[in-house]
Structure formats: C-alpha cells, structure tokens
Simulated scan of single mutants.
Amino acid sequence: MECNGQEITESQYPELFALYKDQQQAGKAFLPDHRGEFLRGWDNGRGVDDGRALGSHQGDAIRNITGSMGLVGHVASVHYGPAWGNAPSLSGAIDVARGWAQNSTTPVGNADPNAINGFTFDASKVVPTANENRPRNNAVMVIIKAVSGPNLLSQIAVPQRTVINASTGQQNFSHSYEVGRPLWVYMNGVKLIQGDDFTATDGSTISLTRPLVADTDIEIESFGKIVLSDMIGDSTHDGQSYVRKDGAWVTEKIADYALLDFGTVTKNSRYVQDNPFGDASVICYAEVFFNGNWGQAYMIWADGGFGTQGSQWGNQIVVQTGRHEVLNSPRNTGMPHGAVAGLTSGLCRVHVWRVGV
C-alpha cells in the first residue's frame, strides 16, 4: 500500500494496525504519509540526529549564518533615532548592534541610544536554523532482508496447507511452518488473530488460546521455502546428482535443489537417472547447450517430435529427445536459443527442485 496517511482497520490489516495504533489518534491507526517528503535514517542512538522518535516528522532547516558590520567612522554630531525622525530601517537578518533596534523606540546594548555603532547578521531571524543543513524529512529505519545459509541465492515461498476436522476440547494442532514467516489459521472459514486466538512458536505446533467447544474445521496455511543452491560457474559431471557447496560440486544433498548432467544426448533417444530426492515430487526442466549458452529446451509433437523434454517418472528423472532433432526453430517451439538449423545432438542437463516429501 502507498504510505499516504490513509487510515487502516484492524480487521483488514491486524499487524499494521497494532504497529501504528494510537500514534496519531486514540484507537485508530494511520499509515505514515511520505508523499513529498525526504526519508532520513532514524538515528537510534548514533548521536547525529538524536532526540527523535521513529516515524517522527522534522522540518527543514539550514545552519545558522551570523556576522557583523562595523561603521567605518563616527560623527558625534549625527544622531540616529525616533527623536530625530531617522530610526534605521533594516530587514531580513540584519540588525543594529548598538543604539536603536530597527524601526523601534527601544535602545539596545549599553551604548549611546542616539547612535548606531554597528550591525549584526542573524539568519535565524528569517529562516529555521539548526546545527546542520537539511530538507524537511521523516525518520525511517533502513533495513535489509538477509537469509543465512551456505551458498544461498534466494528463497521461493511455497504454500503449505493443512485441513483438520477438529474435535471438541482440542487445542493443539500439528503443522510444519517456519517461525517468523506468514501463518494463517481459520476456524470454519473465520480468520483467527495470532497472539489473541492462537500461538505458534516452535515451527510444528499451533495452539489455540482456548479449547474448542464443538467439532470444528480448522484450516492452517503457511509459506515454506525452496532453497536455491549456489550455481555460479559450471562443471563436468559423470552422470550423478550434484549440488553446489562452498563453490564446489558435491554429491551430498545439502539443499532442495540438484543439477543432473546427462552429457551428450542424441535425437530419438531416452535417458534415465535416479531422482536425487527419491520418491519426492519435483519440478524439473531440461536445458541444451548451444552457441555458447545453456537454454531451456521444449518439445513439440509433430511428425514424431522435435526438441528435448525433462520430466519425473516416479523415482527417476527422464530425458526424452525428439525423433528428428534435440533443438528446433524458436518460432516452432518457443525455445530461447535463436536460429537453430536441425540440431541432432548436444549437451544436456536437468534442473531439479523438490516440492514434496
């Protein structure tokens, strides 16, 4: 959502509501309004911009500019002031140092009130000043999302869902989830509020704050992850299952991703390797090396087949090539390789991600 100061309700966004509740108005919550504002990292104890709360607004300011102007000479017979009809008319940051204040009848300093002996310059008389130059801004906390783990490039959220026909008196439910990731619990279709209606702290158990008073359908949803291992570089394989660990290809299963090397494949052929994740369901696709690059290969079933297909068959990963070619024209197959004139053999590999257990 845009941070435009809009009001949010607890029923729509319970977590945001709890974060911003009572900050602007008791019992209500509003998003911050960052339109037209610079964002400034919250000081949070550093001492550069201390004394501010997270989310607070700060007006613009410049560092103060001060100075003085002395008279080159003094003529004792010349007087300045209202009595003589010639009180100084000054503006902006300039003021008198001694004598009469600008356009006033009150003398300043300890000098002869009828004489002006100097001038001062003070920018704070005109503009806001501070010990720094700054635009108007809002204090924000700048954060970076980091995920720990060896050779980790990214995480893809994978939805997980458990439906339970719960019984009267039941309070605890089993569901695998990652602590800190999104988690939703529904009772007969009504969304429950984490913290108020249930707790989830150990990654495997969801506990209702009160036992069920009747048989109820409980639905639990969460996001798991697929970990993509480091794929920098390449290697020559011997037809086995490999993953990347600390910059090297190894055969141990350290992640839910593996790369199978099928070597050189030829048209009208079938190649089989073991599924690196046993009987678990996987997503996989084949790539063929052409013109210096790896690219995903597809299959069209016309007159016996053109292309290369990788797929799962139980506890095996199968590569099947077309009857006529392993790569065909992109306009026929959608392959990314560019112009291909009937490639009948080539290097092949298959990416495999586990999505089941």
Score class of each variant (00 low, 15 high):
Gly169Ile: 08
Phe173Ile: 12
Val288Gly: 01
Gln58Arg: 01
Gln58Trp: 06
Trp42Gln: 02
Ala248Ser: 12
Tyr20Ile: 10
Trp301Thr: 11
Gly278Cys: 07
Gln194Leu: 06
Asn165Thr: 15
Asp49Asn: 13
Ala341Asp: 15
Cys284Met: 09
Gly73Glu: 02
Tyr20Leu: 08
Leu39Ala: 10
Thr201Leu: 07
Gln194Asn: 13
Trp313Ser: 14
Ser167Arg: 14
Asn4Arg: 06
Phe38Arg: 08
Glu325Trp: 06
Asn133Ser: 11
Trp184Lys: 12
Gln160His: 13
Gly278Asn: 10
Gly36His: 11
Thr199Cys: 04
Asp217Lys: 14
Leu208Arg: 02
Lys21Phe: 04
Met231Gly: 05
Val213Cys: 00
Tyr298Val: 02
Gly55Thr: 09
His57Arg: 08
Leu259Pro: 00
Leu347Tyr: 07
Ser56Thr: 07
Met69Ile: 14
Ile220Tyr: 04
Leu260Asp: 00
Phe306Met: 03
Ala87Val: 11
Gly342Gln: 12
Asn275Pro: 03
Trp249Ile: 00
Met231Trp: 06
Glu287Pro: 01
Gly304Thr: 11
Asp256Cys: 05
Gly169Leu: 11
Ala297Glu: 00
Asp43Glu: 11
Leu183Gln: 08
Ala200Arg: 00
Arg270Glu: 14
Met299His: 03
Gly233Pro: 12
Ala248Pro: 01
Trp100Thr: 01
Gly310His: 10
Ala76Glu: 12
Gln316Val: 01
Gly322Cys: 06
Asn114Leu: 04
Arg46Phe: 11
Leu347Asp: 15
Asp122Pro: 00
Ile226Leu: 12
Ser56His: 02
Phe173Trp: 04
Ser281Lys: 11
Asp33Arg: 02
Val108His: 02
Gln171Met: 12
Ala76Ile: 01
Val250Gly: 14
Thr209Phe: 06
Asn4Lys: 05
Gln273Cys: 03
Phe121Ser: 04
Leu259Ser: 01
Gly169His: 09
